[in-house]
Design a protein around this nucleic acid. Sequence first.
DNA 1: GGTAATTTGTTCGTATGTATC
DNA 2: TGATACATACGAACAAATTAC
Lengths: 244, 244
Amino acid sequence: MTKQVKIDRGTGVSVWRQISEWLRAEIASGAFVAGERLPTETDIAERFSVNRHTVRRAIAALTADGILRADQGRGTFVASTPINYPIRKRTRFSEIISSQDRTPSGRTIGSGQDEADALLALRLDVPPGTQLLRIETLRVVDGAPVLVATSWFEAERFRDAVGVYEATHSFTEVLKSGGVHDYERKESRISAELVEPQDALHLGIASGQPVLVVESVNVDQDGRPVQYTSTRMVAERMQLVIES
Amino acid sequence: MTKQVKIDRGTGVSVWRQISEWLRAEIASGAFVAGERLPTETDIAERFSVNRHTVRRAIAALTADGILRADQGRGTFVASTPINYPIRKRTRFSEIISSQDRTPSGRTIGSGQDEADALLALRLDVPPGTQLLRIETLRVVDGAPVLVATSWFEAERFRDAVGVYEATHSFTEVLKSGGVHDYERKESRISAELVEPQDALHLGIASGQPVLVVESVNVDQDGRPVQYTSTRMVAERMQLVIES
DNA sequence: GGTAATTTGTTCGTATGTATC
DNA sequence: TGATACATACGAACAAATTAC
């Protein structure tokens, strides 16, 4: 149900600009959603009875504005504006997402008990082999999965971590259940990898796509590590922001 | 030219641990470089006249320590120890690298003049179309390329940016040439992508490999943007650290 | 794995409209 | 009015990248 649009020549507004404004309006109205492929340059050119170069000029203008993204051989796509994810001492996923007029949600995708390997032992400052509880969650923004996170807690201190998280969906409550009433993020380590097959399924992306990997440690009021989390984010939909 | 090593039994140090320490030393000495595949478990077992299970025990210990990485169906590899790259207000590549007992170097791989597109205009707070000078550099650590960076400066203010950089290899000097005697990093934006073909050549990695993309803005003493930089880092060799 | 089809990217050339001196 | 410069628009052919079969 696309509105019929005529190209008016000799109006003082160039043809490419009229097409550019039409495209901009279509995208704004939701006729083309983020990530969707536009009709081919040839199709648009035929639709308005103009030369393909004229369409390319219109697309180039929107590409420069970051509204479109053209991939040779694949097509032209509505650029998905990445979610800004600030890294601070206290970051709450839902607050960050809501502040950008998006709708957050999430669900638990797994849990269990592990022994601390060398890395976990180092980060949580416990002896290797210590029993740890693991909680895996999937976070969704505007209906699209954006990250999977795996958190570990010392089993002895946070005996019912899994139960508390299931009931409240809040890591703050899990930490409270172990007597931690205040906590903050100590450090974050950021890297990137190709997505693991299992994560790819949860995130709904193809294998071979990159993910941002953020490893973070929460410490209690005394500076002792209480939670270690490994987060894998869909790189295309996420941009980490550090305000130094 | 591997040093001959004997296994001593009954010394209070288990055989698997002796093999494990030998491997650790070989890797530290550079006999096996990061990414290299180890000899098969059978080969190592024969070399020391021990059972293959003993070798597996040694490898498992190093894997737990993150020194080796076993890929099902491919083999066991020396894990590339990532370079820790802290993001702070003042980050100097050479200082960061040197502090980790590594040897930094770099060279200019390109320069030129561009008009500011929408993104550059936004980040540098100039009108779109403003003339900008571009400097592209390649940074190398211990002989291996780790990142390529593209920096833009306002052409009018930093007329001889390219010349100054060529002569001094210092962005501090470039900024001085435009009257900026103090500057700091305002914000950093981190994402990940698959490497661009041209970057892949410079970085010496295969296409399809992920890169960490860091966009950063330097501001002068009055808080005005003076330098915008896009850095693409080999994800496998880099880990960004944010101490919040 | 190889081939053909699809789609964007690049480079020629030609013609026309518009603003300025 | 004429000369000039620049942006706009059309046409054709080919290159490069991706996808489908």
